[in-house]
Amino acid sequence: MGKVTPAPAMGPTYTTKPMVSFLRWAARQRGNVLAYALVAVAVAIALVPYFWMVSSSLKTMTNMFRVPVQWIPDPVNWRSYVIAWHAQDFPRYFLNSGFVAAAITLGNLVLASLAGYSLAKFRYFGRGLLFLLILSTMMLPLEVTMVPLFLIIKRLDWVNSYQGLIVPFLIDGFGVFLMRQYMLGIPKDLIDSARIDGASELRIFWQIVLPLCKPALVALGVFTFREAWDMYIWPLIIVSKDSLRTLPLAISLFMSSYGTAWDQLMPIAVLGTLPMIILFFFLQRAFIQGIAITGLKE
């Protein structure tokens, strides 16, 4: 880490020129105070919306729109969660989102590691071109291709279906890129000696290569799951059946209907964020790493 200055006690000047050293120390403390102040502001800006979401979710409808604003809910209205949970088929929407996101994540992990392995460790005609082709799909975001993609899904008769929600996203150029880069670092000798021992190609992949890629897989998995859980525009386009709604779609529809039942919407917003917070809490490193290496994504 970029530690800029050594600790004051270690400097030789400390014993010889205590005054200078003290002034330096004071200057550094001033820098520290400024740093902490700035960090505190950043933390506040980042967390106030969270605080407001949770606080609002525990208020009664009348207290939500109180003037002046009521920061701490009084009384704390836990019942709003129960009511919201049953206001629509939210358990179902949760399951839909979870299922779709899990399927997309699994698909990406399997296909990206297979494709990455192929591109990193095998020699064949057209490999460079195929890699370029895969990379170039990152230039084709859904916002650009949504119209024809919808037409394709329509022709496949996948409108209002789980296939329609999942299959187009089973693989993404970024995942392939990530896995390829990671697998380039695996020594070829390791694979060759397994071949000499007579292991089949699939077994080499499964038992030798994949276990070595665990960090990359975890990072890619968390990243993909987050994106899939977030997916909004695509379900909005192809889902009109209530039973297939994903959580983001359900939340947005719930907001636009009913003259917005804010006292129910806020608890659902909290519950919809919870899986991401849990994921972040337990897999923080992978979560952040997934983003740090995304360079090419988004």
Binding site: V43, L47, M53, D230, P248, T273, F280, I288
Partner: peptide, 12 residues
């Protein structure tokens, strides 16, 4: 804490 905005789903 500063990272939390990224954790929140876009629709939420």
């Amino acid at each position: 804490a500063v990272f939390m905005p990224v954790v929140m789903p876009a629709v939420v």
